[in-house]
Design a binder for these strands. Sequence first.
DNA 1: TCAATTCCGAGTTATGTACTGGGAATTAAG
DNA 2: CTTAATTCCCAGTACATAACTCGGAATTGA
Lengths: 135, 135
Amino acid sequence: MWLSTKTRYGLKAIYEIGLHFDDKPISLNTISSKYDISLSYLEQIIALLKKEGLIKSRRGIYGGYSLAKQPEKISIGDIIRALEGSYAPTECVEENDLCEQQPSCVTHYVYKKINDSISEVVNNLTLKDLIDEKL
Amino acid sequence: MWLSTKTRYGLKAIYEIGLHFDDKPISLNTISSKYDISLSYLEQIIALLKKEGLIKSRRGIYGGYSLAKQPEKISIGDIIRALEGSYAPTECVEENDLCEQQPSCVTHYVYKKINDSISEVVNNLTLKDLIDEKL
DNA sequence: TCAATTCCGAGTTATGTACTGGGAATTAAG
DNA sequence: CTTAATTCCCAGTACATAACTCGGAATTGA
């Protein structure tokens, strides 16, 4: 299990925010209760999503969070990158890779294939897909 | 980077063992020097591969390790499972999953797609592919 | 008998995850 | 203009795991 609670909680949270796209902002208290996630921890997680510009906030009473973009403009990849930092299996296939032996390194080939297949999935799947799925 | 040094070192090691498929067994000392991995640590890693029946050993002087099967019968998935335990992004898509809300859980759908795409890659790529690549 | 090897189990250190807690700033409603 | 519900911010803590090190026993071909 290589996805941390940050990503797992954060994905549920932004999905919930996405469900209320047209409505008033939704508060963290609501999400915290619904998914049974500690409020303080959720605050920290949601801050990462905001920092990446995926959601926006309104402070004060009746405040809360809403999506900063259309749900079809927010990919699962964006969300994982915001929360986890990266989904790369190894450092050598990270964006800013500094591994100089590639591509002579055989194992690099393996890690690149894994990374590419994950990219394919997460960058072509958006919040809208999840919302429309209506499970 | 969600693959640990166990997997990263172990993959290099079994690849090296695979290169000597027809030869005499190769010692850990050789691999340890070539890839600059501590011998004691390598011993522990290699033990995992042996426990899973991917390699076999000969003790004593001129002993060492060799593949227990043909390289085309050893998939990268086998190797990662032996070393890392699993490559599942979350517990809920693990083999012995105990998550009861699936498939009503939206996020489960995401994790399953990621897991499936990794499976596709690692279970269809074998040691033979790496050896033949001859990089 | 010796030296090179595998095998085995215990201990160590550093890092990161998964939180908890306190308190300040904001804001709509009464 | 006070109040309550919210976001925001920063500091700290407990626990688990990763990534090793170390010591020594058992095996085996020359």
